[in-house]
Nucleic acid binder design. Structure first.
Length: 305
DNA sequence: AACCTTCCCTGATGGC
DNA sequence: TGCCATCAGGGAAGGT
């Protein structure tokens, strides 16, 4: 489940390896991955092109070519890794246990759907077990048609991420705050893990309706979103199942998580058992003591009563 | 418009 | 040991 920190980590790793590399040949083996234009057309377009840069917006990677922009969304289990003939493949790549395992570079297997071959024994492989990833190639002059990209909300580390805008767009929303956080048009790059973590840090119950948050709570949430994302980025991302960086190595952020994946374990802050519920069809983890169902102000007025 | 549900997919897991 | 049902989840599409 690559979210902003994972996608950014992959971007930085790939950039080191493939920037200004010329693609000699594109091999596309998938038949189900959402990919536009069709495989042979996409392969033909990118053959001979050089990767001028790699950018990121939310969970999208943008490969920059002279005449094209390639949007890649890794979905649930997409992996982009660099391959170099002079480095040894690692047959431990297929991971069955979560945690600290290292993947390293892997040979093409049945889940490796797309490969860029750069020549001289170098390549970039796209592997995607659940096939929820999406690839979309645009000519530069048609890139403005990429709705899913241009409709993204503000980048949490960018200048467009301001509190006045943030609170304004929460006001009228009557869905659980957790669901709003997962909406990429609200804030770009937040997924299930970091949504739970940000709500914990802000002390807000995930089922609280967005419009019911007090100004204090909104301010806390506004701050904790970039905070937990930055921490994830510093740790090289969260490796639970399928995330590995461009060199096939796991991240370390799973060890700093306060609630995600910690059902039944003790809250680091108050030692209450972490609970798991379902909100908007997504597994949601929280501490019932640190994240009360009632807002601060509601509890105050209740006390006055 | 906003919100909710269903669906896509494979591997891990647990019950029997 | 094996078989089968269930679960995980980002986001598009369809329904209310």
């Amino acid at each position: 489940m690559p979210e902003l920190p994972e996608v950014e980590t992959i971007r930085l790793g790939l950039l080191r390896h493939v920037c200004n590399h010329r693609i000699e040949r594109v091999e596309i083996r998938c038949n189900r991955i959402v990919l536009r234009p069709k495989p042979n057309e996409l392969a033909a377009a990118l053959g001979g092109q050089s990767i001028r840069g790699i950018e990121r917006r939310g969970k999208f990677l943008v490969f920059v070519f002279d005449e094209y922009r390639l949007l890649v969304h890794l979905g649930m289990s997409g992996q982009l890794t660099y391959w170099d003939r002079s480095r040894k493949d690692d047959d431990r790549f297929v991971v069955t246990v979560t945690g600290l395992q290292q993947a390293r570079q892997h040979p093409v297997d049945k889940h490796t759907h797309i490969s860029f071959y750069f020549g001289d024994g170098k390549a970039m492989h796209y592997r995607d077990i659940r096939q929820f990833g999406k690839w979309r190639l645009y000519r530069v002059e048609e890139f403005h048609e990429a709705k899913e990209f241009w409709q993204l909300g503000p980048e949490p580390f960018g200048s467009a991420y301001t509190y006045s805008n943030f609170q304004e767009r929460i006001l009228s929303r009557k869905l659980p705050i957790k669901s709003l956080l997962l909406n990429q048009r609200f804030v770009a790059g937040v997924g299930n893990i970091y949504a739970d973590e940000a709500l914990f840090e802000a002390g807000i119950h995930p089922q609280r309706l967005a419009h019911s948050l007090s100004d204090k709570e909104k301010r806390r949430l506004f701050k904790t979103i970039p905070k937990v994302l930055r921490r994830g980025l510093r740790q090289g991302g969260t490796s639970f199942q399928n995330y590995f960086n461009a060199d096939g190595e796991a991240g370390n952020n799973q060890e700093t998580l306060r609630v995600y994946g910690r059902e039944g374990k003790k809250c680091h802050r108050c030692r209450t058992a972490i609970q798991r519920i379902v909100v908007g069809q997504r597994g949601t983890h929280f501490c019932a003591n640190c994240q009360p169902r009632r807002s601060d102000s509601a509890r105050r007025s209740r006390r006055i009563d």
